[in-house]
């Protein structure tokens, strides 16, 4: 059987490469009975459509940045609460606390959780020294979802809505002067052409989740199901390791191209931690009991 796997990011992205290895692993484990064909770069379905496509069986398996669906259910945004879990280790703890709930929510949507891999952590890009939140006042900050708009609001920055495709141009022309994203985005969009400072605040580590259509999954024999789960576990581990390894490389590339790369100053770190508390509370109030249980479990660890 052939499973087409739509993916949103370019073929050379580490998530896509990791998924190719996952596909090879499944093919080998099933002796070729289950052949997963990855379609990178949104060439089958665009990122925004992948979850629905898998839900409705338009594709049997797919990968999606799960926090993009936080409007639908706040639980999907658990990995993207700013300044709550600000390292690979903390992010893993948070994910472990949230995973049972998420698997249940996905199962209710006819989806089977296979594996998830974190993106490199999110940091601030600016074109000047920023040592505290006070330094951010009035800066034109790219907001692309509710959380980033809230960060702008809390920090007194002017939110400007810019789509990913226009980010480079917006930075070059000064439409936006700052944004928050991973080191990878900065390298990919050659951000040093427009901005000068990167602060590695590790605001959050969003995850790409790979899920299968439940009907398609249930129709497999036990050996194939086991292959998916086992290869998924392998892919989760290797993907996370790759993400961590790449993070250092991205920051080095930014620095090599003349950007000032550093951690947050003490003042900035304290200011941002306060945002973390505020935004976690806000998230809990929208996510309800399930959300509170996750945060309590995370903090209790």
């Amino acid at each position: 059987e052939t499973w087409d796997m739509p993916m949103a990011y370019p073929a050379t992205n580490f998530h896509s490469e990791n998924a190719s290895q996952f596909a090879a692993c499944v093919k080998e484990a099933t002796g070729g009975a289950l052949d997963i064909v990855t379609h990178a770069g949104g060439s089958l379905f665009s990122g925004s459509d992948i979850k629905r496509a898998v839900q409705t069986g338009q594709a049997p398996i797919g990968e999606r940045l799960i926090s993009a669906h936080a409007n639908e259910n706040p639980l999907f945004g658990v990995d993207s609460i700013p300044f709550l879990a600000t390292s690979f280790a903390d992010s893993d703890k948070l994910w472990a606390a949230a995973r049972p709930q998420l698997e249940k929510v996905l199962a209710d949507q006819n989806l089977v959780y296979i594996y998830a891999v974190p993106w490199p952590p999110q940091g601030f890009y600016f074109k000047k020294d920023v040592n505290s939140v006070a330094d951010m006042a009035g800066i034109k900050f790219r907001a692309y979802n509710a959380a980033t708009a809230r960060i702008a609001e809390l920090a007194g920055m002017a939110p400007v809505q810019i789509e990913a495709a226009e980010l480079s141009q917006a930075l070059a022309t000064g439409v936006a002067e700052a944004f928050i994203s991973s080191g990878a985005t900065g390298v990919d969009s050659k951000v040093w052409e427009s901005l000068t400072h990167f602060y590695d605040v590790q605001a959050w580590l969003p995850r790409n989740v790979v899920f299968a259509n439940k009907d398609a999954f249930d129709a497999l024999d036990d050996a194939a199901k086991k292959a998916l789960t086992d290869c998924g576990d392998t892919a989760a581990a290797s993907g996370a390791a790759k993400s961590e390894e790449l993070t250092a490389g991205y920051l080095k590339t930014l620095a090599d191209n003349g950007m000032t790369v550093s951690g947050p100053s003490e003042q900035l770190e304290a200011d941002l931690a306060a945002f973390g508390t505020t935004m976690s509370d806000e998230w809990v109030s929208s996510a309800g009991e399930d959300g509170k249980a996750i945060i309590d479990a995370y903090r209790g660890q």
Binding site: R52, Q55, T56, H69, N71, A143, A146, A149
Partner: peptide, 15 residues
């Protein structure tokens, strides 16, 4: 009908 059934919500800031 499917959008209603799945409670599909815009992923943008408009929700």
């Amino acid at each position: 009908q499917l959008s209603i059934k799945f409670n599909d919500v815009s992923q943008g800031q408009d929700a």
